[in-house]
């Protein structure tokens, strides 16, 4: 059984039907890519899965449990982590704080623990910081741990976001156009990291991306979306399918990208 199952999702904005009977699945240890023209509804689908939008109808199941309609923080608790378009690091916080904050189940985040059991909180905090530092080190940015996040370069901020995802212990990673604005020399490194998240860390990665070369290199499964699912399958099959080209051409969307 797939860890994440989406089925029968419909979403309209006003009179515009953006998603029509869309379904997909994500498996642990695999990268599933969503591709399609701008305005095809890919980010809308990510927003629905991660709780930022409510579908008009349809099911989103995580580990068999229905999570459609859950707010974002509950989707996180169910095991879904996501990035946003344009890196969204937390300004005025250090690199380490940016990562540690995603550590789930911190007891120190409750007032009664912070006030009445500070020794418990301190011990847990040491553990979580060490864990976060390990993630920073695995992405080669541990030197930025004490720097303010807005002092990092764009590429480093993307890595910081990725470290935040890794630290969150989520099972499903939703990546929203991670290659946007990345220097071509760095794309391969980042692709390897995305692939490693699935193969080494065992995550179910859902990748929304416009860079088709990256998509074909990195994915186990590709879903082409254009308001509805046009074609899906392993990259080698989708590449050859004639519906792929027509999916991208002549599509005028009324919805925002």
């Amino acid at each position: 059984m797939a860890i994440l199952e989406v089925s029968g999702v419909y979403k309209s904005f006003g009179g515009n039907l953006v998603l029509e009977n869309v379904g997909m699945q994500a498996e642990l240890g695999q990268v599933t890519s969503l591709i399609g023209p701008n305005g095809a509804g890919k980010s809308t689908l990510l927003n629905i899965i991660s709780g930022f939008l409510k579908a008009d109808s349809g099911a989103v199941r995580m580990n068999g449990r229905e999570i459609a309609g859950y707010p974002p923080f509950k989707c996180f608790k169910a095991g879904i982590a996501r990035t946003f378009q344009d890196s969204q690091v937390l300004p005025y916080m250090t690199g380490l704080d940016n990562v540690v904050v995603s550590s789930p189940g911190q007891r120190g985040e409750m007032e009664h623990n912070a006030l009445f059991r500070p020794w418990v909180v301190a011990a847990e905090e040491r553990e979580r910081r060490a864990e976060a530092m390990a993630h920073l080190a695995s992405l080669d940015i541990e030197s930025k741990a004490a720097s303010l996040s807005q002092a990092l370069s764009y590429g480093q901020q993307k890595l910081l976001e990725f470290a935040r995802m890794l630290n969150s212990r989520a099972q499903v990673f939703l990546l929203d156009e991670p290659m946007a604005g990345i220097h071509p020399d760095l794309i391969e490194g980042l692709s390897k990291m995305i692939r490693a998240a699935a193969t080494e860390h065992g995550k179910a990665v859902i990748l929304v991306e416009h860079n088709l070369k990256v998509v074909m290199d990195v994915s186990d499964y590709v879903v082409v979306v254009r308001g509805e699912v046009v074609v899906e399958g392993p990259p080698s099959e989708v590449e050859k399918d004639e519906r792929l080209a027509s999916a991208f051409l002549g599509f005028v969307s009324n919805a925002a990208t």
């Binding site: 923080f73 985040e109 935040r164 969150s168």
Partner: peptide, 22 residues
């Protein structure tokens, strides 16, 4: 405390804060 870090996170970016479980 970590609670304070949650506060700072919410100030910094509420959408990111909710996407990481706050």
């Amino acid at each position: 405390s970590p609670y304070g870090r949650v506060l700072t996170t919410i100030r910094a970016n509420p959408a990111v804060a909710s996407s990481i479980g706050k």
